[in-house]
Design a protein around this nucleic acid. Structure first.
Length: 841
RNA sequence: GCCGGCGUGGCGAAAUGGCAGACGCAAGGGACUUAAAAUCCCUUAUCCUGAAAGGGGUGUGCGGGUUCGAGUCCCGCCGCCGGCACCA
């Protein structure tokens, strides 16, 4: 194939138009106040998840999402929108740093090189980004504002009264440091020895690091945290109004994990009451023992001398287990009796307190009341250790195994006979009245562990003095990492920046924070910077924010955000959190950043397996472009199937769309005797025939609505049908190209531009107004109906478009008359313009 | 285990409850050519029947149901993919 002559000279005109678009700033989007800004045009902000510029370069998976957004950006421009379609680089991150350590090159150098590679690959695809808005998270002019936003978090707290973030100055308590949205805490964190850093919960998968797959262990360390849990309810509620895939909303809801229940205090002999959380306060009468987590702070106090050795043994055994071992569900329940007893407040019963690792310190209060009759885990534990089981809920229908569902309360004193929902309410009421507890809500969501022991990240704008922290002044930003020869991890939780002694020393008494921010920091707000990327006075100008993101009066934000599912609970949750803080503090005008979200499906290798170097099934955009051109690559990725679906690559499929593009080329062009491309001699100024005109308007209509529905594959099919119709038309009406080229332009912009210009038409194809279909051209005088008998196809009939039902029935009946012999017509269904169905017996 | 999503030709896929398989790939046949490539045209779900034109049956993972009519809606299964997973 590669030695063959190309069927059309894409290798010449594709680079030509790419250069032309760049040189003329063809896709520059002016901001309010800029020359050429037209406030009468509505805005459309269409965003890609910006890439991490890895050393491997762009892959075909990137191209899929980016092509989809490019089609929509071009389409909206042609429809008269102010379109914001930017691109940038999420360039901090572990791989760059690890590569740097391996090769001895500074990450700034390798990152810059990777960015150049990515940029030129994107430009070779003809994407219509406004390159004047390009940003990189690693640019000090960018991350000064990342640091600035961190300071906003640091200087704010969440006021539970107003349910909003407010300046810390409105906080009336004694210790502001205890309520800041950015705070320091000593807590058990995910420490990854191989990576030499701590990780967020979201970055740990099955007890291993998401990056690299190294084991992760629990260690108590002093870390920066962001109080995302304060926003749990708002992050949950905000989902309702978003046009996101339900599956993604569900992932976020599950991750936030809201549970309604009650806290109950159990009296302890000779000690403070022990508090538990339960979602089933209605089963309190069935609590036959308690369990506290082995890490519970009161474990020492609760352990009686007779049990001390056993408890200590158990605790050290648990501590040595990895998270993976500990969460292995297949294993037997383990635990030890502490020797203490608690008093069940509802019936005064004395119940034993155990410790067991199936109770987690990180959720609820780290202690539970065990109701083995109605909780599978408690039931297993009770079975193992011969603890009593008391049924207090009667199922409404027969069930097998442990009944954990809802039913009717029994053996439960004042609750007896009440259905579960009502019994819960009654018990909470009783607890609150008697002072034994209260209704409460728990979340699975934890605060966001925000510091990393890395070199290649944003330094914290914080200094330490006499053991306490304080913020740098905004004027001191950006705070840039020092140039270091040796930025390797220290192998201990001590960050690499601690080795830069001069940099660390801030003043006589104060020293800098040496942790850096995680990679998510820069991507939490890049969509805002794109609105106003060169603003030196503010992270985003107010007018730019109001114009591109909306003024808050209608659901605003990014109009369409396209990216992979892998960010469902990481980036997409973090960004929403930061955005809400900025919104509360009055820095942005919309409450949610991303109005509509679409996930593109994964592209598999030709072998139906996930593309990977080790499998050797990776397809690179570069090879496809040199063989078939950028337009063919773009078109193929859109033609493969629905955007959101997972689908395998097929080089034969690329050839198919390549042939289609060649056919479009030959609609307009032919070779002369010397093999040069000249305008086709078949082209003529004749008007379209009635049928051709109908097809043209059907095509405009279908392509328009398919693009709006992101159904690019069927839009392309329709353009193929249109093209096939004209390939052999003699004479060939040039009008067909005048309609087709603008429609094709968002998909195959180079080809459309080239033919438009060769046909000698004014302007560029990409600048034309989008064609408008006219309904009156779509209708025919006659229409063919399907004739069915008992729902089975038995014939066809042509009738006039306005024919009355009786007329249609009569015509249809004539077609299938013999089917009625010895039969009786019971019913006739007439669907206008579609079919006639006779029901006979 | 729980929660999602998806099952249609040899393959990628189409189909507001109304002609299942548009469009593309692959395959077969033909035209053009000294030949090939490219291009263009035709056939292509499957079974039965017929010399042929044609006619008939079956068919959207499986089993039921609703409907004049189901790939599409409802109930119950099976399979694949993804997420969560001792969260009380």
């Amino acid at each position: 194939m590669s030695t063959q002559r190309k069927q059309f000279p894409f290798g010449e005109f594709e680079p030509k138009w790419q250069a032309e678009w760049l040189a003329t700033d063809a896709f520059r989007a002016p901001n309010p106040g800029d020359p050429g800004f037209d406030p009468s045009k509505p805005k459309f902000y269409i965003l890609d998840m910006f890439p991490y510029p890895s050393g491997d370069g762009l892959h075909v998976g990137h191209v899929e999402g980016y092509t989809a957004t490019d089609i929509l950006a071009r389409f909206h421009r042609m429809r008269g929108f102010n379109v914001l379609h930017p691109m940038g680089w999420d360039a901090f991150g572990l791989p760059a740093e690890q590569f740097a350590i391996k090769t001895g090159q500074h990450p700034r150098v390798t990152t810059a090189r990777n960015i150049d590679r990515f940029r030129s690959q994107l430009q070779a695809l003809g994407f219509s980004y406004d390159w004047s808005r390009e940003v990189s998270t690693t640019d000090p002019e960018y991350f000064r504002w990342t640091q600035w936003i961190f300071l906003q978090l640091y200087h704010a707290w969440f006021n539970p009264e107003t349910r909003k973030a407010e300046p810390i100055s409105t906080y009336r308590g004694a210790d502001p440091d205890s309520v800041r949205l950015a705070y320091v805490a000593e807590m058990p964190v995910n420490w990854c020895p191989q990576l030499g850093t701590v990780l967020a919960n979201e970055e740990v998968v099955d007890g291993r690091s998401e990056v690299g797959g190294f084991p992760v262990e629990r260690r108590p360390l002093r870390q920066w945290m962001l109080r995302i849990t304060a926003f749990a309810d708002r992050l949950l509620e905000g989902l309702d109004g978003l046009a996101w895939p339900e599956s993604i909303k569900l992932l976020q809801r599950n991750w936030i994990g809201r549970s309604e229940g009650a806290e109950v205090d159990f009296q302890i002999e000779g000690g403070e009451p022990l508090r538990v959380f339960t979602t089933r306060p209605d089963t309190l009468f069935g609590a036959t023992y308690m369990v506290v987590s082995p890490e519970h702070p009161r474990i020492q106090e609760l352990t009686k001398d007779s049990q001390r050795t056993a408890v200590e043994d158990y605790r050290s055994r648990v501590a040595s287990k990895s998270d993976l071992e500990r969460t292995d569900l297949a294993k037997e329940k383990t635990g030890v009796f502490t020797g203490s007893f608690a008093i069940n407040p509802v019936n005064g019963e004395r119940i034993p307190i155990w410790t067991a690792d199936y109770v987690l310190m990180g959720y609820g209060t780290g202690a539970i009341m065990a109701v083995p009759a109605h909780d599978e885990r408690d039931w297993e534990f009770a079975q193992t250790f011969q603890l009593p089981i008391r049924q207090v809920v009667t199922p409404t229908e027969s069930v097998e195994g442990v009944f954990a569902g809802e039913g009717v309360a029994t053996n439960s004193g004042f609750l007896d006979g009440r259905p579960t929902a009502e019994a819960k309410r009654a018990m909470i009421q009783w607890l609150e009245k008697e002072g034994h507890g209260k209704g409460t809500i728990q979340f699975k969501l934890r605060d966001w562990l925000f510091s990393r022991q890395r070199y290649w990240g944003e330094p914290f704008p914080i200094v330490w003095e006499n053991g306490s922290h304080r913020a740098l002044d905004e004027a001191e930003l950006p705070l840039v990492q020092p140039d270091m020869e040796d930025f390797k991890p220290t192998g201990t939780p001590e960050p690499p920046l601690s080795k830069a002694k001069d940099w660390v020393r801030y003043s006589e008494a104060a020293s800098r924070e040496t942790n850096t921010m995680p990679q998510w920091a820069g991507s939490c707000w890049y969509y805002l910077r794109f609105c106003d990327p060169r603003n030196h006075g503010r992270f985003v100008g107010r007018d730019a924010d109001r114009f591109w993101m909306g003024d808050g009066t209608i659901p605003g934000g990014v109009d369409l955000y396209v990216g992979g599912t892998e960010h469902a609970v990481l980036h997409l949750l973090y960004a929403r959190f930061w955005h809400k803080v900025l919104f509360d503090l009055g820095h942005v005008s919309t409450p949610e950043p991303f109005q509509r979200l679409v996930n593109q499906g994964i592209i598999l290798g030709p072998d139906n397996q996930k593309m990977s170097k080790s499998r050797g099934n990776v397809v690179t955009p570069d090879s496809v472009i040199s063989e078939y051109g950028a337009d063919a690559l773009r078109l193929y990725e859109m033609f493969m199937g629905p955007l959101e679906q997972m689908k395998p690559w097929s080089m034969k499929g690329v050839e198919g769309v390549y042939r289609f593009l060649a056919r479009v080329w030959r609609l307009a062009m032919e070779e002369d005797q010397e093999g040069r491309w000249v305008l086709s001699s078949e082209l003529s100024d004749v008007p379209l025939s009635k049928e051709q005109n109908r097809l043209a308007h059907t095509t405009i209509k279908k392509v328009t609505s398919d693009i709006q529905q992101l159904a690019f594959n069927t839009a392309i099919s329709q353009m193929m049908v249109f093209t096939n119709e004209f390939v052999n038309a003699k004479p060939r009406p040039v009008e067909a190209l005048r309609i087709l080229l603008p429609l094709l332009s968002p998909f195959a912009p180079h080809l459309a531009e080239e033919l438009w210009s060769r046909l000698g038409w004014a302007g560029r194809a990409s600048e034309q107004s989008w064609p408008v279909f006219r309904e009156e051209f779509l209708v025919d005088d006659e229409v063919e109906l399907v004739v069915q008998v008992n729902g089975k196809l038995r014939g066809r009939v042509r009738v006039a478009i306005g024919a009355a039902d009786e007329e249609v029935q009569a015509a249809a009946k004539a077609v299938v008359a013999e089917a009625f012999v010895d039969k009786r017509v019971v019913k006739v269904v007439v669907v206008p313009k579609k079919l006639v169905n006779f029901v006979v017996h």
